[in-house]
Design a protein around this nucleic acid. Structure first.
Lengths: 341, 341
DNA sequence: CCTCCGAGTCGAAGCGCTTCGACTGTTGTA
DNA sequence: TACAACAGTCGAAGCGCTTCGACTCGGAGG
């Protein structure tokens, strides 16, 4: 391996000069700079990451903590991860992958050993045990999602309250009077996961505000569970003409279930999804949806983190506004909905 | 941050002694060992990762290169990744996440800067530009999937040739005479991705061997594409009674398409999938399938890598045998298949 | 003409750890 | 009884980089 000393010798300068050329932290004559840069290329020099980290107290590595838990929808996670890695690279950082099952200890481990400079934590629960740890850690962090007490943290998320409300408003505007939210598996609610909880809040508040019936139910991923959940729902509330689904993997089977139950979409049942655009567009009929801007969120998370690393301030809470796209799965409510369930 | 010198002072020994206690590389009296360990705990000491890496020439970090490309099925990738991280942790290593779009340069970057000790590369193509780079790199690597020329590399994969053949044999044993393989999107074949290519080979060879008609077609992810592909297929080869699908995201819609086309599964059409077990079990009817043991593969990859890091030899190619599980989506061929298409 | 300042460069001192060689006692062996 | 052998410990020398202070030199200002 070629070291900075080799480069210095080759260029006929001191090692520190090479360092300053590379970092730009002191002015260097253009003559020297060129000579050094040529030597760097000629020798194929790459700074040793550990040595650099040790001397500069910066590893240029960010930790990314991703959940690998039951009920989470994987492709969305992956989009986050991809955006985080890509954005990190733009700022000359790398990403260390941690799974949530190492828990709070994992965060302490990588932080206190200076393996990383900062952390991105995904899938934060309302009462997350990692949050107090993050507060004490001697380095910045950004949460995707946000806990009940977000004081002193930096959180970024889609505004799920607004997302839930938007769905209701869209359906209400179309004349629907009885709506249901088909949510994530109950385990996700039991964990008090923020996004699920808040969507529910937004949904309920908007239904109330618009004077509609709004019922909510969790839904597991198996076909039978979906079938049973929907049957039960329509049995209990036969007047329901609008469905909001926040549970990506069940979207396909749900369409089957509705067909099997003789409910045409959208003629008999308007359907809205909270999911990635490509998923919505892949269905038949294409689904009206509120998109989850995973890429934007991941990118924003890293940008905030870099800003914090540079010592600048960032807002405690960044809520991205949801974007609703009407497609073919929602239409005006059938007139017979005097049966306001 | 507390350093090894602090611990040494607190325990009344030399720093090197603390180091030897921690690494176990020299014998230490149990008295001293206890004292040091108590000090470590009392002070909450964590070795500095960079200093350790610099001094020992080992970062204890593995690079994981994951593809984030069109046509790849994300949940499977994630299972690999999770298994890699979990297994790496068991061996006291961390995982640095690289996306394939950094290409060969990314590998060189992390390797030559000593950011990592070894690499796991996923989704290897038959003629992958990263392979020559890996051969030259001054550190071990393991490929998941394998290129045309695997000489001097360490590759681990499911035996997709056997997987394709197993599907054919299963259907042939049930009396089916005309089969089709519904594959990945054509982009994946154009990239000459190993797993797609080899499944195709196994499928074709087995069909030939059993004297069956075996047709193959790629399939994109949209509903319309699936519908069109299947219609075309059944139009060109009306006698087809057995379908093998290697394309996870289309499995749900494919079942719809078959229903829409009036083909009952399995009465009119036997269906086999090459996919994760949970996906097969989630469908209605549950799918007979050859499972993709993502977890086993990821685990095996890390174990091989650690073995290589320790200087021991590992086999160049490890092919995991496929496991076929018959479920409800395959049954005996209808008798009218004298129409041997 | 002298001083001051800034640009440009160098040398040396770390960063926190591992590891090598050397030292000191003990114990076992001839 | 002498000497090897070994367990147990220490000090010092790096690992490859960054960064601080100091130095030189030319030009600007008084």
């Amino acid at each position: 391996m070629v070291t900075i000393a080799d480069v210095a010798r080759h260029a006929g300068v001191a090692a520190s000069t090479v360092s300053y050329v590379l970092s730009g932290k002191r002015s260097i004559s253009s003559d020297t700079r060129d000579r050094v840069q040529r030597s760097v290329r000629a020798l194929g020099y790459r700074p040793n990451a550990s040595a650099r980290a040790l001397a500069s107290q910066r590893s240029n590595v960010l930790a990314l903590v991703i959940p690998l838990r039951t009920g989470m929808h994987v492709p969305v996670m992956m989009q986050f991860a991809a955006a985080v890695v890509t954005t990190a690279r733009r700022f000359d950082h790398d990403v260390l992958l941690l799974t949530a099952d190492e828990g709070p200890d994992g965060l302490e481990r990588v932080a206190q050993s200076s393996l990383v400079d900062a952390l991105v934590v995904m899938d934060v629960e309302l009462h997350d045990k990692r949050v107090p740890v993050l507060r004490e850690l001697p380095m910045p962090s950004v949460l995707i999602g946000y806990p009940a007490d977000a004081d002193g943290l930096t959180c970024i998320d889609l505004d799920f309250v607004a997302a839930g409300a938007h769905c209701v408003d869209h359906l209400a505007d179309l004349g629907h009077r009885s709506l249901a939210l088909l949510g994530t598996p109950s385990a996700v609610y039991e964990r008090q996961t923020g996004f699920a909880q808040r969507t529910l809040t937004g949904f309920a508040e908007a239904a109330e505000r618009r004077g509609l019936l709004g019922v909510e139910t969790p839904c597991e991923h198996t076909f039978d569970a979906i079938l049973h959940t929907v049957e039960q729902l329509l049995h209990d509330h036969p007047g329901i003409t609008g469905l909001v689904v926040q549970n990506e993997p069940i979207i396909g089977p749900l369409l089957d279930v509705l067909r099997r139950l003789g409910r045409r979409v959208p003629e008999d049942m308007s359907l809205m999804a909270i999911c990635a655009d490509d998923v919505a567009e892949r269905q038949v009929p294409q689904l009206s949806s509120v998109t989850i801007p995973a890429e934007r969120i991941g990118q924003q998370a890293v940008e905030s983190l870099i800003t914090k690393l540079e010592g600048a301030d960032v807002p405690e809470l960044t809520l991205l506004p949801p974007k609703l796209t009407a497609r073919a799965s929602t239409c005006e409510a059938p007139h017979r909905d005097l049966t306001t369930a």
